[in-house]
């Protein structure tokens, strides 16, 4: 009887553990795809309902903001809302769930550097957010005609927005100690920021003070950029928006990297 023996040895890799990073980043996407009814079809249905309700209640009457109709205006808002909400939720839930169930060790023990884990979490969350956004956009295109979308512009703002919200989600997941904390952040911070960002209405119609306040909200620049990409209509400066979002993403990335490296609230 022969036993096939193969000496076990640690896998070798160079400066970056590419296989580990890919596995780690793909984790959230696989989980989401597994429950696609809840995670993809749910947002799809509710967003189409939103579109229908706004369309019935308003139609394109009395709409005088540039060359685009209200439904065209609205699509960008729905897509960005889906992207932002899902990116944030994915990262926060992934980390918090692992923490509460004690599975966070599986990720901490894996041969991944803090930088690789930061990138992995961010990519995982952002890709889920972008997939949800793409599904919502695809469904909207059945009802709403978008003449000449500028794809690079659209992608730039959508990806930056997803990354920023993903990073915020990581911070939330690390900070939260129970589901209540995460739910509170969702309701009292993320939801107001997303709703009061010009997602669903043009800020030109607001009083001066409202317009200025909304311009302090980073999500406004994401919506505005994505809308510029989809319809060519925008209300703020795209350069300012891009600069602001990129610097915010960089700052958040450094912060998250430090948090993950220090093991704040994750390692004993």
């Amino acid at each position: 009887m022969t036993t096939q023996t193969r000496t076990l040895q640690p896998r070798r890799f160079g400066r970056v553990n590419w296989l580990g990073l890919a596995t780690f980043a793909g984790r959230d996407m696989r989980r989401v795809l597994k429950s696609y009814r809840y995670s993809l079809l749910g947002p799809l249905v509710s967003n189409m309902l939103f579109l229908a309700v706004f369309h019935i209640a308003l139609g394109d009457r009395a709409w005088n903001f540039g060359a685009i109709g209200f439904s065209q205006f609205l699509v960008a808002g729905l897509v960005v809302f889906a992207v932002c909400e899902r990116s944030f939720e994915t990262a926060a839930e992934s980390i918090l769930y692992d923490k509460l169930e004690g599975m966070i060790w599986d990720t901490l023990m894996a041969p991944l550097t803090p930088l690789e884990r930061t990138i992995g979490y961010t990519l995982g969350a952002a890709s889920v957010g972008l997939l949800t956004g793409a599904v919502v956009l695809a469904a909207s295109l059945l009802f709403v005609r978008l003449p000449a979308p500028d794809v690079p512009l659209l992608m730039f703002f959508a990806v930056t927005g997803a990354v920023i919200l993903g990073l915020c989600g990581i911070i939330a997941g690390i900070w939260a100690e129970k589901w209540d904390h995460q739910a509170a952040l969702n309701t009292f911070l993320l939801l107001p920021l997303s709703f009061l960002s010009g997602c669903y209405y043009p800020i030109s119609g607001l009083p001066e003070i409202g317009r200025q306040l909304i311009q302090l909200n980073p999500i406004f620049y994401v919506v505005d950029g994505v809308r510029a990409g989809l319809t060519g209509f925008h209300e703020g400066s795209l350069q300012t928006g891009a600069m602001l979002l990129l610097s915010l993403a960089a700052l958040l990335f450094i912060l998250v990297h430090r948090l993950i490296r220090s093991g704040y609230k994750v390692k004993p």
């Binding site: 308003l58 309701t187 107001p192 709703f195 009061l196 669903y200």
Partner: peptide, 23 residues
């Protein structure tokens, strides 16, 4: 109790901001 309250007020704000002018 508090979260539904906030969400509903946000809904009200949005609909009024988005539609109030024209309807």
């Amino acid at each position: 109790v508090l979260a539904p309250l906030v969400t509903t007020l946000l809904f009200l704000a949005i609909f009024v901001l988005a539609l109030g002018r024209s309807v």
